[in-house]
Design a protein around this nucleic acid. Structure first.
Lengths: 191, 191
DNA sequence: TTCTTTATATGATAAAGATCATATATAAAC
DNA sequence: GTTTATATATGATCTTTATCATATAAAGAA
């Protein structure tokens, strides 16, 4: 049995990680299999030992990304749920997120998903559902009427990040993000 | 002087119209030049008499789309600005918009734009600016502090439409759109 | 009708890139 | 060290598609 037990699994994760970042930043079509493999110091030939094809990698990378997102991090015990949520949202609505290496695929791939296969759409829908659940949980929401507030909140933050990526001017981006951070406080304050 | 004066201009508009719809629905890469031309009963050869290339068509179609959007329609004299705005937002946040033939490129192409050329990004930024201005105008906003509310509103509605397109389940889509319609009323009510 | 200019169509080219077949390298097991 | 299963690399193929060169068609002007 050549190579260690974990070797293949490690390689798979490296590929998923490169894919997650590249796909999120540039979408499905603009990224090549070759590019993803080179990003983790491999060549395209090795790719097919790990995934059945580019589409398969895309949906797997999306799941992987959702599984390891900022939002899924454990809340420190010394702060309240609402404080923690507030911090998470501020990080989400930051220039670092918009321009950074750990992009939320819900915002970065929102329109890319539409042309993808069922597996990718399912992964997206699942991640979206989970995001709402996490936020509702921290916000202490259970009534259906309040659920609507959270849904509008996620629409806003996902929209804000998606739009911010399209805009070059830093000041404008700061303005959008700041406005939405403000609005999150208003929405959560009412709950 | 063969062909009538207006013939070329008419053809150009037909191409722009097919392009607007196809690009908005499926993004730049998933649509072929051939497909756009066939959608207006022409062949790919004729294309290059009208546009310098696919990228050029994309940005032109985006401008064209922004120029002819629902939002730019004249307000009827018999209703107030706020009522008109409320109607516009309800149309924007409707299943018909999400699934229809007259998509707002700001929502439908939000993440597609990132990989496009400067002309496309400029067209997008311009359309985004215009959308905010139109809404602010109808809402009667002038103070900078209130501008933030409108920016968060546009983030929300663009985000809601973008997300809704990714989701197959009709009931979930209705729920997202309904929640955001509700939230627009809260935001505009405070102004 | 004939000429002429411009729009449109057709066929060719060329590049990009996903995928596959085959070769090579790696490292565990003996 | 040798063997061998598995991971990785290399080279080839095949499809898709943007673009271009050239041919044809359309319709105003003579």
């Amino acid at each position: 049995m050549p190579y260690s037990q974990q070797h293949k699994e490690k390689t798979r994760k490296k590929i998923l990680n490169s894919a997650r970042e590249l796909f999120s930043k540039r979408g499905f079509d603009s990224v090549t299999v070759n590019e993803i493999m080179e990003a983790c110091s491999l060549t395209r030939g090795a790719f097919y030992a790990h995934f059945s094809g580019k589409s398969n990698l895309y949906s797997e990378a999306l799941k992987y990304s959702a599984m390891n997102s900022e939002l899924t991090k454990k809340k420190p015990k010394n702060i309240s749920s609402k404080q923690w949520l507030s911090q998470l949202l501020d990080v989400y609505l930051s220039v670092e997120h918009v321009r950074g290496e750990e992009p939320c695929p819900l915002a970065f791939l929102a329109t890319d998903i539409v042309s993808r296969d069922k597996a990718a759409k399912d992964a997206y829908a699942e991640a979206y559902k989970k995001m709402n659940e996490i936020i509702m949980d921290y916000a202490g929401v259970d009534a259906t009427c309040e659920e609507g507030s959270i849904i509008s909140l996620t629409s806003m933050i996902i929209g804000a990040v998606a739009i911010s990526r399209t805009i070059d001017d830093r000041r404008s981006v700061e303005n959008i993000l700041q406005s939405c951070r403000q609005q999150t406080r208003l929405i959560l304050g009412e709950i």
